[in-house]
Write a protein that binds this DNA or RNA. Structure first.
Lengths: 196, 196
DNA sequence: CTCTGTCTACCTTCTGATAGGGAGGCTGTC
DNA sequence: GACAGCCTCCCTATCAGAAGGTAGACAGAG
């Protein structure tokens, strides 16, 4: 028992970092063992199989997102502000290289090769994110806080795709600034036109 | 020597399919051997190492894209039409599940864990695609065939991000229709406004 | 005879996983 | 208080299979 972080939390944290960098098949128990400072076998005590580990990780990831978003909605309920904050969150993560990619976005790219238990959780994350964004778009449209040119659902999917694609580009170019540069016009377009 | 396809071409083709599904670490020489109907050792005759194989694959992929795009520009030089055709190409590939993901987009997602020789080629593909899209945006803006709300370069990056993000969503949901649904508003927005 | 393409056989290292044991901490009973 | 029993956590040792890769032989074509 560590005072600040459980061993199983440390395992999950390093697994997230490793997945973020190379995907499901891009890391091994040996890699985690090295980072956490523990033996391979000890990881199996906490997570019997790799599938258990990653499934737990994805579920936890979604739960954290749910909590974070709920807090966000309370702090700044303005739809446009919510979208900006969401994009800003990722811009910051990419810039300081702390979590430069969404775990689920990466796992989704290799979805066909993923164990079904994990694939299901990844899909659930996408549904969750899409549902939230759709609700933000709907509310923004209703309140006049967002100017939509399509149905809320479509706008939500397009926004999510922009974020994921921008993450990819930032990684491909190796330049974090690309992310906000891509998102800026999208957010601009969603802003209610202040007169003409 | 096969009458229609070289063995090395068959190897490259099956490698592309396998990478498209599970990424660089998601396939092995054994997998290719099974598909092509050859022994592992024979693959090493054509491509000494896995890095050789995938680097060749990515280079070939970019060359094919260059040729395809050059042909496209000759057939239909209208900028908006070019973008629609490009998006339509992927929509078709995703729909008939023939090549439901861009190899380089997938490899880019695991870029930090990729052998540097391959990472370099993937980056080169992104630069190439971005350069082409920027040129299309520039020309479209000059000719009035596209209505841009940002600089051509930014519009190009945003378009590319939308395409990649939409691919990811189509894969995550398992519904091909998502791709064109996301791209439609983007293309709509780029269309020159026919009056009000 | 040589070159190309394939084969069998083998090697090394890594991978996820298991068995079994030991140290330490709680808890209930005498 | 002492002790037994159990639980948690980590260890060493080991495994079977898959990974990427090599060596050397053989068949056919030029």
């Amino acid at each position: 028992m560590n005072s600040v972080l459980t061993t199983s939390d440390e395992i999950l944290a390093s697994a997230r970092t490793l997945i973020t960098s190379g995907g499901y098949n891009g890391f091994s128990y040996a890699d985690i063992a090295k980072v956490v400072g523990i033996r391979k076998a000890s990881i199996h005590h906490h997570f019997p199989s790799k599938v258990d580990l990653v499934r737990t990780l994805v579920i936890r990831y979604r739960q954290d997102a749910e909590v974070g978003i709920a807090a966000l909605e309370q702090d700044a309920p303005d739809p446009l502000e919510l979208l900006k904050t969401y994009a800003g969150h990722w811009a910051k993560c990419i810039e300081d290289a702390s979590r430069p990619f969404c775990v689920c976005a990466l796992l989704a790219s290799e979805l066909p090769a993923l164990p079904p238990e994990i694939a299901g959780e990844v899909k659930a994350f996408f549904r969750f994110l899409s549902t939230w964004l759709t609700s933000v778009m709907e509310r923004g449209s209703r309140e006049g806080a967002l100017s939509l040119s399509s149905q809320p659902r479509v706008e939500a999917e397009a926004f999510m795709a922009s974020v994921h694609g921008a993450m990819l580009s930032a990684r491909a170019y190796g330049t974090p600034e690309v992310f906000p540069a891509i998102l800026a016009p999208t957010l601009q377009r969603l802003s209610p036109t202040v007169a003409q």
